[in-house]
Computed example of a mutant assay.
Amino acid sequence: MRLDAADIRLCLGKSGSGKSTLARSWVAKEKRVLIFDPNGEDAWAKGAVVTEDRAELVELVSKPGRVRICWRGVMTGGEGAFEFANRCAWAGEDMFVVWDEVDRFTDPMKLPPVADNLVQAGRHRGLHIIACSRRPYRMNRTLTALATRMAIFRTTEPRDLRYFGDYVGEAASQLPTLRDYHALDWVEAGVSIKKSPFR
């Protein structure tokens, strides 16, 4: 059994603040990537095989070696399509899994079962999770509790500001005025403001 270090990264904040750009930079050079794209964004599709077909997704994930998949089944398939693709990721191993707009498929108190398994035990299969959300207060609490890194972009929602205050302390007061493509970069060792993209 493998035992990789946990790697659960969150990109949080308002639309247009830079979170998707950062997430894309984190996976730009990775060999195996599965992107959940509920909005049909051209930027996610660049250099990827775009599919909404479940059989094709199974085939792509099962291929050894380099693969970059933009899964758009979540545009029309709802929670069932979200769980199906997560089962594929679990079977595929050694992969970066990017959940864009994850708050559309989860809620604060409950992750769908397979997604929960990826978060709780994905490191045993070489899975890395990157989750993006415009509405951090709706982010699942298992994700935030187990996150190894949070990039928090501009937000003005009072509930989010109170929540982030528990993580970043006084630095949360800077969140409403952060410029585009600037984020509070939180890791357990501390927090700093960085311009996106950053490693």
Rank of each mutant, 00 (worst) to 15 (best):
Arg138Met: 14
Val102Arg: 06
Gly78Met: 08
Met150Lys: 06
Cys88Ser: 10
Asp160His: 09
Arg149Trp: 01
Arg125Leu: 11
Phe36Ser: 04
Glu56Phe: 07
Ala81Gly: 12
Pro158Lys: 10
Lys46Ser: 14
Leu60Asp: 10
Leu111Thr: 07
Glu101Asp: 15
Trp44Lys: 06
Asp107Phe: 07
Ala91Pro: 11
Ala131Gly: 11
Leu57Asp: 04
Arg159Pro: 13
Asp160Trp: 01
Arg87Asn: 12
Met139His: 02
Lys31Met: 10
Phe36His: 02
Val61Ala: 07
Gly40Leu: 05
Asn39Gln: 14
Ile152Pro: 07
Trp90Ala: 08
Leu60Ile: 09
Asn140Trp: 00
Leu127Arg: 01
Lys46Trp: 12
Ala89Tyr: 02
Pro136Glu: 02
Ile69Trp: 00
Thr51Lys: 13
Phe96Gln: 05
Cys132Val: 11
Ala89Trp: 03
Met150Glu: 06
His124Ala: 14
Glu79Phe: 12
Arg154Tyr: 03
Arg125Ile: 02
Thr148Ile: 11
Gly40Gln: 03
Gly122Pro: 13
Val74Gln: 02
Gly47Phe: 06
Ala48Ser: 13
Cys70Lys: 00
Gly126Glu: 05
Ala151Tyr: 12
Leu118Ser: 02
Pro108Thr: 04
Met95Asn: 09
Phe82Leu: 12
Tyr137His: 11
Val50Lys: 10
Phe105Ile: 07
Arg159Gly: 14
Val67Glu: 01
Pro64Gln: 01
Gly126Ser: 10
Ala43Gly: 08
Pro64Glu: 03
Ala115Cys: 07
Ala147Pro: 12
Lys63His: 03
Cys132Met: 07
Asp42Arg: 13
Asp107Tyr: 07
Glu79Ile: 13
Gly80Asp: 15
Val97Asn: 03
Arg87Gly: 12
Val58Gly: 02
Leu143Cys: 08
Val33Tyr: 00
Arg66Thr: 11
Arg154Cys: 08
Arg154Met: 15
Asp160Lys: 08
Arg135Val: 06
Val50Leu: 09
Asp100Glu: 15
Asp116Lys: 13
Arg54Gln: 15
Arg123Thr: 00
Leu57His: 08
Thr144His: 00
Phe82Gln: 04
Leu143Tyr: 07
Ala45Lys: 15
Arg32Pro: 10
Gly92Ala: 15
Lys110Gly: 09
Ile35Pro: 00
Arg87Trp: 11
Arg134Gly: 05
Ile69His: 02
Gly80Pro: 15
Leu127Ser: 05
Lys110Asn: 10
Ala85Ser: 15
Pro64Phe: 00
Asp100Ser: 11
Arg54Trp: 01
Thr142Asp: 09
Pro38Glu: 05
Glu52Val: 08
Val67Thr: 11
Val67Gln: 04
Gly65Thr: 02
Glu79Asp: 13
Arg87His: 14
Lys31Cys: 09
Pro158Phe: 03
Gly92Arg: 02
Ile69Cys: 01
Asp37Met: 04
Pro38Cys: 10
Leu118Ile: 13
His124Cys: 08
Arg135Gly: 00
Leu34Gly: 02
Arg72Pro: 06
Arg87Ala: 13
Ile130Met: 09
Glu83Arg: 07
Pro136Gly: 09
Thr106Arg: 00
Ala115Phe: 06
Phe96Leu: 11
Gly122Val: 13
Thr106Asn: 04
Leu60Cys: 09
Ala45Phe: 00
Leu34Val: 10
Ile69Leu: 07
Arg104Gln: 15
Val50Tyr: 08
Arg159Tyr: 13
Asp37Pro: 12
Trp44Leu: 09
